[in-house]
Design a protein around this nucleic acid. Structure first.
Lengths: 195, 195
DNA sequence: ACATAAAAAATGAATGTTTATTCTTTTTTT
DNA sequence: AAAAAAAGAATAAACATTCATTTTTTATGT
């Protein structure tokens, strides 16, 4: 364990408590009082670290998104081929969502809620830039279809969110084999067939 | 206009108001009092039609989902070939989401919230059966990859939700051309390449 | 067709919680 | 001993839900 300022410990506990409560019943069932209790802290203490509830949620969102993207690009290097690079990142994203279901589910709850402010969402999107660059490279090499990045994302990364949520709900068990076929679908959807 | 019982009008107004308010700020900002006001109804009246707030949200969810799926399968017939049928349904789903952004966005907010009860979600899923049948037929004819329906859904229908939300946020303008390339991605991801 | 009484639907105001946030005091750190 | 961090209790507003009345609809007898 890396040593940490005491104050940082409290803040981290609050972040963790927020994620946990929001996951279990949604934003509306995560009152400040419960968050404080779960973090072993007085409600008043929350306001030392966050302006208000909206700020709390938004800060947690940006923080989790940053951790997520850090993890996603950890093993990726720019020297990889396009397909290698894409595969690497795709599997890392999947691994994060599988290994840290709490954080993954929190993010997917945030994805469509108007609670997250525009500029936080924008900031979260910025972390995706290396992947966008990789796609451009792939398009220049005629390996990847020349289509809008939103469509590339929608058909390769976004499907993972569905599979993770289905698994969390217990509808579906995502095995290694399923993961491999899901990857194949993702790649087939964006690879250039005229190559 | 088909004639409608007065009581049904009130109920419909409540459903509409709920969708509109939830869309604008999320579940937490759609209090019963505001829903009632927007529907031009007393708060007490809500409780004549719905047990409580949870019931209201869940009933609205099921209802919108039913309308959505009705629309999706309207022009589909079982005599179509697999690819025709899939294309038809896919474009209808897209059209619904484009033409009725309010309802589409409401559904996507529901998709990941724990506010929706398990059995309502299950019921919503049932409406999807004709598509699942079509996929099975496609698999028997070796036209579609032999993989779990969850993965087929994740890679063909789910991506549309992302594109619609991006458009609603103003990140992205979904043109006819974009839609066609998105369809091509969807189909490429699940069609059997060894055919 | 009409008056009327019973039933149903709808209401506005009231209730009792729950909530986010703040204030004053106490504890901990410097 | 001063400053910073944290606490618990207090506050005021917002909320879901209920209650006592009023309004509207329906059914009935003439």
């Amino acid at each position: 364990m890396i040593s940490q300022k005491k104050s940082e410990i409290k803040r981290a506990a609050l972040v963790k408590a927020t994620i946990s409560l929001v996951n279990n019943q949604g934003f509306h069932a995560a009152p400040m009082s419960k968050i404080a209790k779960l973090a072993n802290v007085s409600p008043a203490t929350i306001y030392l670290y966050f302006e208000n509830k909206q700020d709390l949620i938004n800060q947690v969102y940006v923080e989790v998104k940053a951790r997520f993207m850090d993890y996603a690009f950890k093993t990726y290097t720019e020297t990889m081929t396009v397909e290698e690079g894409f595969k690497t990142v795709w599997y890392r994203i999947a691994a994060f969502k599988i290994n840290d279901i709490e954080q993954g589910f929190f993010l997917s709850q945030c994805e469509n809620t108007p609670m997250i402010e525009e500029h936080c969402r924008k900031q979260g999107l910025q972390y995706l830039n290396p992947l966008l660059d990789l796609w451009v490279k792939g398009q220049e090499q005629h390996i990847i279809k020349k289509i809008a990045p939103h469509i590339l994302y929608a058909n390769t990364i976004y499907p993972l969110a569905f599979l993770m949520n289905a698994q969390k709900r217990g509808d579906f068990k995502l095995t290694k084999q399923h993961l491999d076929t899901a990857y194949q679908c993702a790649w087939d959807s964006i690879k250039n067939n005229n190559a």
